[in-house]
Design a protein around this nucleic acid. Structure first.
Length: 613
RNA sequence: GCCCGGGUGGCGCAAUGGUAGCGCAGCCGAUUUGUAAUCGGCAGGUCAGGGGUUCGAAUCCCCUCCCGGGCUCCA
């Protein structure tokens, strides 16, 4: 059990359930050291601000933090002073001492600490424990090092805002984050890794590689895809289109606007309105930008009467939707306000739900294998039963949906964590999570089981006995939002897209101007083979052109000079720095075509979903 | 939305109260080069926008917009 008042985060996505003894011991050591560091930091802050009010200070994955309410705002310039005081305390090496006291005694002890009083209030036991080092005492369930000198090397890294108890209606506190690892070397490694990671940040690479831009004039969360970014998006969409067509999907186009009534019927108006753009009042109607296009697809289903024989009906769309994301939430390509979703809705009989779910998982596994995504985890996102605002109220429906998803995952033998409060307003979902280069979790794919919207729209099919029955809807996104998957892929590949996905696959590099003509011949052959190629005709030396292509992370550079022109050859250099020497042009074309074909038909790794469906 | 930090030519940065500068990219010229930067020249900014303080503001104050780190939320 986690210490109360020092509540730790949920287990990380990569959480492994089997740990060796050494790993367990290391976890425990780090836990104590980081937790102790939080206390030492609190003491340091109290020294600087005698009126400070203390909230919580837990260890986290990479270190620790503590939340305070202070008379003034902390800035990054305050961190060195806090750190200095902490180091003094570490050096003095005083013991942590535990005392168990009655709640009444604790109440008196923390009379001027409102957050601590609130924590004490929530403790079910008769007593609470206190930890003291030097003159500083904190309410804490503990597990600390024996003395302050036993903590590992650390560094304070940032100051941030955080709501008390994570509730946006409660006061905003100031959080100081520190990182801590067992040795100075590990700490330095971690900090260096973070610096390296920042270099693959899709916002940096997106600009450098000409993927996308933003403009103050267009607005926040509204990126413009440049030609290279547009190429990547189109390739992703074409790939998914083919996969879905092969899987029996029918693709549609629906408008980006709809009447408010549409969303009143679906329930979006009641449960999703705060992220919808406000209605446009027109002559006789109110229109909103569509935040999701399930209602449109539902109406397409409803356009005719369907036999049980026709089901499942699978509708797919590469649609745009508009969501008023909070200003503090938007950023780069991974969180935008105009979202292009690889959306799809499966209308099926109740007895088909599991097979359809498995079919969607198959699409996911295949797409991930093709895209090279290997580090991901499954999250079963459930409703928070206490939250009456966010979720439609129908207990039976929720229980059914959650059961179906859980059983489907168990049958497929896939591991997952459960996350209450993460469901869609109309039903539970299975989210597939990845981490961005800075370690933040994001959902790429999502599969949702929906018993709600079929009711709202009174969907039907006709069964064997000619009775009207209600279908189930599975909402799903495989590569999810194209913006987000692009952000993820840029970071995954550090901008060096695999050849099939690279916006420019080949650069032709004429050594001197007299080789430009032959370069054009090469370019024509490449383009005739559907290879995306360019030629660098700048008045620069070959070395400069190679460097330029290298920085643009173009998979192949074809150097052409006198020898090549004479022999209908190209001298091939890969962006990995390999010099493949001169080869006949046709040989290079075969090589690159083979490479692309292989990428698009990968061995599907991971759990064998296909065998079970 | 909330807390904190930012916004200077396309990009990366300097100037912290006294007429805005560097590198890269770009353009022009010279060079015609064999696997990661040839040389020279030119051009480019109402310092995010608006208001205020001051003899004078990129620099100090206020508002708005935008970006970043967190929190909340989420594809």
């Amino acid at each position: 059990m986690r210490p109360r008042g020092c509540a730790c985060r949920q287990p990380p996505a990569g959480w492994r359930f089997v740990m060796s003894l050494e790993e367990l011991e290391q976890e425990e050591r780090l836990y104590r050291m980081r937790h102790s560091a939080a206390h030492i930091m609190a003491e340091a802050v109290l020294g600087m601000f005698p009126d400070a009010k203390f909230a919580i200070g837990p260890p986290i994955e990479t270190g620790f933090y503590y939340d305070f309410l202070l008379p003034r705002a902390l800035t990054p310039e305050d961190l060195p002073e806090i750190e200095r005081r902490m180091k003094f305390r570490v050096k003095s090496d005083v013991p942590f001492e535990r005392a168990d006291v009655t709640k009444d005694a604790a109440w008196e002890r923390f009379a001027d600490q409102p957050f601590k009083l609130e924590i004490i209030d929530g403790v079910p036991d008769e007593t609470v424990s206190l930890y003291t080092h030097a003159k500083f005492t904190d309410l804490c369930q503990g597990r600390h090092t024996d003395t302050t000198g036993q903590v590992a090397p650390f560094k304070l890294v940032s100051v941030a805002g955080a709501y008390w108890r994570g509730d946006e209606k409660k006061p905003m506190l100031q959080r100081v984050y520190g990182v801590m690892f067992e040795t100075q070397e590990q700490l330095d490694d971690y900090l260096a890794r973070m610096e390296e990671a920042a270099k693959r940040d899709h916002r940096k690479l997106g600009r450098e590689l000409g993927i996308y831009m933003t403009s103050d004039l267009v607005g926040s969360g509204l990126p413009l895809l440049l030609p290279k970014g547009a190429t990547v998006r189109r390739l992703l969409e074409e790939y998914m289109l083919k996969q879905e067509r092969d899987a029996g999907y029918q693709h549609v186009y629906t408008p980006d606007l709809g009447k408010v009534e549409l969303y009143k019927t679906s329930g979006h108006w009641d449960h999703y309105r705060d992220i919808m753009y406000p209605p446009m009042d027109l002559e006789h109607e109110q229109l909103v930008l569509t935040p999701m296009n399930c209602p449109h697809h539902i109406l397409i289903y409803k356009d005719g009467l369907h036999s049980y024989r026709e089901l499942p009906i699978r509708i797919g769309e590469f649609g745009t939707m508009y969501r008023y994301e909070k200003s503090g939430a938007v950023g780069g390509l991974s969180r935008v306000r105009a979202i292009n979703l690889n959306d799809g809705h499966l209308f099926c009989r109740p007895d088909q739900v599991k097979a359809e779910f498995a079919g969607v998982m198959r699409l996911v596994e295949r797409a991930y294998a093709t895209l090279g995504i290997t580090d991901y985890s499954y999250r079963l996102s459930l409703r928070d039963p206490a939250d009456k605002e966010k979720y439609v109220q129908n207990d039976a429906m929720w229980e059914m949906g959650e059961r179906v998803l859980r059983e489907a995952m168990v049958e497929l033998g896939l591991p997952f964590v459960e996350a209450p409060g993460e469901a869609a307003f109309y039903g539970p979902k299975l989210d597939i999570q990845v981490r961005d280069v800075l370690g933040r979790e994001e959902s790429i794919s999502t599969i949702q089981v929906d018993f709600h919207l079929p009711n709202q729209f009174e969907l039907e099919y006709v069964d064997e006995e000619s009775n009207r029955q209600r279908p189930v809807i599975i909402h799903r996104g495989i590569i999810g939002a194209t913006e987000r998957i692009m952000a993820y892929l840029i970071e995954l590949y550090a901008g060096a897209f695999p050849t099939w996905l690279a916006p420019v696959q080949v650069t032709v590099i004429p050594i001197a101007d007299r080789h430009i003509d032959y370069g054009h011949q090469v370019l024509s052959s490449l383009r005739a083979t559907d290879i995306r190629a360019e030629m660098d005709i700048r008045s620069e030396r070959m070395n400069n052109k190679i460097r330029h292509a290298q920085l643009q992370k173009i998979p192949y550079m074809l150097v052409v000079g006198d020898k090549e022109a004479e022999e209908q050859a190209v001298s091939v250099r890969t962006r990995a720095g390999e010099d493949l020497k001169s080869m006949p042009l046709f040989q290079f074309l075969d090589r690159i075509k083979d490479e692309i074909a292989e990428s698009l038909d990968p061995e599907v790794a991971g759990p064998d979903v296909g065998a079970r469906a």
